[in-house]
Design a protein around this nucleic acid. Sequence first.
DNA 1: GTTATTTGCTGATAAATGTCGATTTGAATT
DNA 2: AATTCAAATCGACATTTATCAGCAAATAAC
Lengths: 234, 234
Amino acid sequence: MAKFSRTDNCKNCVDCNKKIPLFQLLSQSELTDLNTSRFEVKFKAGETIFKQGTSATHLLIITSGLAKFYVEGVQERQLIIRIVKPWEVVGQASLYFDNRHHYSVAALVDCTACFIEIESFKKMIRQNSAFAEEFITQCTQKGVFSYEKMVSLSQKQMHGRIADGILYLSKKIYESNQFSLHLSRQDIADLTGMSKDSAIRILKEFHHEGIIELDGRNLNVLNSEQLERISETG
Amino acid sequence: MAKFSRTDNCKNCVDCNKKIPLFQLLSQSELTDLNTSRFEVKFKAGETIFKQGTSATHLLIITSGLAKFYVEGVQERQLIIRIVKPWEVVGQASLYFDNRHHYSVAALVDCTACFIEIESFKKMIRQNSAFAEEFITQCTQKGVFSYEKMVSLSQKQMHGRIADGILYLSKKIYESNQFSLHLSRQDIADLTGMSKDSAIRILKEFHHEGIIELDGRNLNVLNSEQLERISETG
DNA sequence: GTTATTTGCTGATAAATGTCGATTTGAATT
DNA sequence: AATTCAAATCGACATTTATCAGCAAATAAC
């Protein structure tokens, strides 16, 4: 894991907090409180931000860049649970469980990461019930997302899973039909639970059928309705 | 869904609360408060307790019996997320999300179910921060459990998944090596993400190899170390 | 600029898994 | 005991998916 090193980039915290709905529920003094325990680190593409199994002392907010949130499965394989965008709070699972990271997070591109000390965060949960409620909301949303992902992984065939993966990236992450993909083919395979070769094959198929246009890492979703259909039929 | 009907079986609420760690954090007056919005319903084996898609108005605690917690996936298939034992609080995901059930719960055997009105429960979260923290702990534990389940479903082959299923039932649910199974073969298939025929095949194999003894619905885990090994190698 | 090294791609093959039909078992009912 | 029905079982087969070997293209290292 990259060493934490204090930087002075985190000067615009008030502005930063405006972007995180959860933090809007905090008072000025609570914000100040949280800020004192906060620091920023830059990561290069490929670097590990959280490593599964290490002890969890901080929560993470990516303020720029993109990262993958994954668990290390059997035989060195990775399962990408989700992609982490800026302003998303990462590390809930470690807060009250056993202070271990049960997943890894790695930068897909150069990232700026903000670390928040867990105890300060817990203090907010205790003293601000609106904050606690919003936090619970986010946990439960992730729970429902997990159920859908389990269905996709276990009941859909490769075409359906790739369709799910593309729709997820296009709708939830890049919020556009056309984008420059930051995931390798192996990453897409790890996101959809299949081998790299199979992922490549299905992507090519979708390309040839005119559902997507994929040239290197430039992805253009041409027919999202059909992707939805493929996703539903499995 | 079976209609809710008030019964007067819920007379021993103080005793009942002793069994639920979460509720031990409540004061006497808070307990009384919660109890007024509480009622009990009996379900016969096979009956649906929560139906995916319906509106969520209550949380559920099974006080006797056993139920399956599942999502309705593609083509009428079910994916059993977990088995619900007595004294487990069910329905967190609906609390703050969109007041819909994103999963179904059905009785595996005759069950007694206690329903708690959601708004009363939310009130406890707001006014009792220890209660909120314990509740968050449970949510995050379920999150970590989900990650492990995703790895099992997407990266392990059938032998590993069946091993995981048996170990889950034996360690977490029945807490014994020998028990009378309340799940059908189809349920085991839905728990491990495979077809019923495949589940039967692997179970027979484990039986012939002397890893388990399975006669009808009587299951005896003879060699749990080997099951662990099979689980790890996928 | 040239050489490594990774990443992407493809076809052939093998392994894993699902599907189907037929049969048996067991429980519930008459 | 006879009947009915659902669950469990099994073998044969079809389909899905992974693996492997080899190659091309892009990228990084020298």
